[in-house]
Design a protein around this nucleic acid. Structure first.
Length: 274
DNA sequence: AAGTCTTCCAACCGCATGGGA
DNA sequence: GTCCCATGCGGTTGGAAGACT
């Protein structure tokens, strides 16, 4: 007797969420709180499985999420925590408020791994890679099946020189990593630079506003003051919801200096709440 | 300009875990 | 102790978008 599927998949929608679906989910959770994910899609009028709803909420819609690339400090934290915890992304994420395990995992796989390899550090062991070992070479998405690879990568590509001298005494590599950490490849953004798309500039069809942080700023807008007002209104409207930081002490001004402002801009602009 | 390749990340899948019956 | 269910977690994939030829 096999395990039952988490939900009846017949007739359920998959793939990217639309703005309309997001709005339904947000409205439902703000009104009812998070409980019994299996029941959420039915009650919220969504043709999704509960798991998908939970993921969408925790990874993207949650109001306390930060947006934008990880800061230099956050990257260092991730590396440090990874050296202690390994691929336990949720544990790592729990040390970085506003970041999700999925986000950290993706960032690790796409950015940090590459940086460490470039520095001749094994991303799994956090130890220096032997000069004869070429597994640290940049691998063009080696795990991808994407097929279109018409030719296999050349076997004899010359090994790249390590960017830094690597200590071989086996002592704590974190000092080295942090000291020699290269950040020039990934533009870092300050909290005040984290912006969200205007409703007018985001496609209403299928949501790709998630990629806003990597797009040109000309299509973005920032309106922290309205976000603060919105947050206050939302807190008044939905007092039963656990609002992050701000509303508990009533210091709305903090929001203006805070990354949450962008989240509320996003909610306000895309969903037209209130 | 068009086709191909590469990168990135949201979302999915399946197993693990925990709690209640 | 066992089974079932809901949720959590980590690995993998699809496909859009940008880079390259």
């Amino acid at each position: 007797m096999g395990r039952q599927p988490c939900c009846d998949k017949v007739g359920l929608k998959k793939g990217p969420w639309t703005a309309e679906e997001d709005q339904k989910l947000i409205s439902f959770i703000l009104n009812n709180g998070q409980c019994c994910w299996r029941a959420v899609p039915k009650l919220a009028g969504l043709l999704r499985c509960g798991k998908s709803c939970r993921l969408r909420w925790t990874n993207y819609l949650r109001p306390d999420l930060k947006r934008g690339l990880l800061s230099e400090y956050e990257e260092k934290m991730v590396i440090d925590l990874h050296s202690q915890l390994g691929n336990r992304w949720s544990k790592i994420a729990s040390h970085l408020p506003g970041r999700t395990d999925n986000e950290i995992k993706n960032h690790w796989n796409t950015h940090i791994k590459k940086k460490l390899r470039k520095m001749a550090i094994d991303p799994q062991t956090h130890k220096p890679i032997s000069p004869t070992d070429d597994t640290h070479l940049p691998q063009k998405d080696q795990n991808r099946r994407k097929s279109q690879r018409k030719q296999p990568p050349p076997q004899s590509s010359p090994p790249k020189e390590p960017k830094f001298e690597v200590a071989s005494n086996g002592t704590n590599m974190m000092d080295f990593i942090i000291d020699g950490f290269c950040t020039e490849e990934v533009p870092l953004i300050e909290p005040h630079e984290i912006l969200v798309p205007c409703a007018s500039s985001s496609s209403a069809a299928t949501t790709s506003y998630s990629s806003s942080t990597s797009t040109s700023t000309s299509s973005l807008c920032s309106n922290s003051e309205s976000a603060a007002n919105l947050l206050q209104d939302l807190a008044n409207e939905f007092p039963e919801f656990e609002w992050p930081n701000i509303c508990e002490n009533g210091i709305v001004e903090e929001l203006l200096e805070d990354d949450f402002g962008s989240t509320w801009d996003f909610v306000a602009n895309n969903y037209g709440f209130l």
